[in-house]
Design a protein around this nucleic acid. Structure first.
Lengths: 246, 246
DNA sequence: ACAAAAGTGTTCAACGTACACCCATGC
DNA sequence: GCATGGGTGTACGTTGAACACTTTTGT
């Protein structure tokens, strides 16, 4: 190990000795990987592509790309989403940065991971290259790189996030039954819930609007259909959580 | 903007065309910055050094360094702490990654920020280069780079963390009065609290040990001195929060 | 005696949790 | 008529918030 002084003054060294060509400690690339969660047919889904890499051919991979030297990371995120799915309106949150030395087979790549929840029905995929499609999270076996580990971390992030905010309402179709909603929560959080308490909780939030409609073609008593009062949610969110979110 | 395909296949391009010399999209450096919080004389403190950079001479800076191509990020973190303070036993948590294009005056540097709370009395600084010392957080005006913004984000992180876990107990001296503890919480969280409720809450946690001693030389009725049952905290923490923490 | 902070309990509201019966529909 | 899930209310324990008086010490 070099002396403390030398080890701690790399910026200055950079300026004085190697201003243009990437010096040794710049042999690190930075990427962004995006985890998009959705929900369909009572399953938690995630959007994946087939990896571009030969080593990982036939393995599934998150949506990612390298950060360009002249672009902000937020821009990298939206560029990836735009280029891979054709979507413009997906709001991603930074979750964690992963950087084990050997996580990428072709060199040092540190990756910043972003996460989002999207409504599959309301976000039709406009591009399908690399076999882009929604996968059942629970059915995923192997993935490229360390993406399985990243996915696990994002799943935990999602669980924490959903316990704090009623984010789940975003994931359903415009009109849904309380059973749909409860199944969504039970699936993502991995635990059974009491039906009466669950209904009480969500009604008390005041974010559900009774559409007056009923389920159709169900082999039992049809449930009421509700929609989500998104505007009211935005307001209460601001009031309760201020800018604390990140 | 290049075509979607070109924009989304940089790994492959890297392999095929420029295997060794850092290509354009590698002209990005990655650093780690460390925020160490402490508490002394009823003030929230943070450890800073004078910036090495000429542009920022006389400005205060977080403890940071570039990530080396062959080292894990965890290693960068402990190397920075070791080299700057001489300490070995500081456990840091990753908070957020900052990467605006112009955040560093000499080139593109994306920085991964780690945070920790340390007990100032129990962690004597062994190295003092670059005027390393503890600063009052509230008295800090300007900082180098975007470190002021980073500090704000870490302060919010600290507040959230302290509402979830009784971390504050780490920051005090071995023996402390309940007044010390409450002042610590009021200072860091920025709000007044009710004394009776505060005492109830902490006694109910069962993490406080009555030392049988009293405050000395105070111009009023002396309070009891307590110590922190660290072992019990570790156990209850495991039970309650599992591995969810990150 | 006075100033200053220590020490102490009760009440109320909100929230989570546990729990069981009748109802409407499709088959 | 039967199977399936819809719809509903009560009781209890926990938690957080509000709130005031007596006690102990130094000066």
């Amino acid at each position: 190990m070099p002396s403390q002084k030398a080890g701690s003054l790399p910026y200055k060294k950079n300026v004085e000795k190697e201003p243009v060509h990437a010096p040794d400690y710049m042999k690190v690339a930075v990427s962004v990987d995006c985890v998009l969660f959705g929900f369909e047919r009572n399953k938690l889904k995630i959007l994946l592509i087939k990896s571009d890499l030969e080593v990982y051919k036939n393995r599934w991979s998150l949506l990612g790309d390298l950060v360009r030297p002249d672009e902000d990371i937020d821009n990298t995120v939206s560029r990836i989403i735009k280029n891979r799915t054709g979507l413009n309106d997906v709001y991603m949150e930074q979750v964690h940065t992963f950087g084990k030395v050997n996580r990428h087979p072709e060199g040092r790549v540190i990756t910043i991971v972003y996460c989002s929840l999207v409504n599959i029905k309301h976000h039709e995929l406009k591009i399908l290259d690399n076999e882009l499609h929604w996968h059942d999270v629970e059915a995923i076996k192997e993935m490229a790189f360390d993406h399985k580990e990243i996915l696990s971390a994002c799943h935990i992030w999602l669980q924490r996030r959903m316990r704090e905010h009623p984010l789940g309402l975003n994931l359903l179709e415009k009109e849904f039954s309380l059973r749909d909603l409860q199944l969504l929560y039970e699936t993502i959080l991995g635990e059974k819930m009491d039906r009466r308490n669950f209904r009480k909780k969500f009604f008390n939030m005041g974010l559900l609007v009774d559409t007056g409609k009923l389920e159709m073609n169900v082999p039992h008593r049809p449930g009421k259909l509700f929609s989500f009062n998104y505007d009211k949610y935005q307001k209460t969110k601001k009031k309760k959580w201020l800018g604390i979110d990140f």
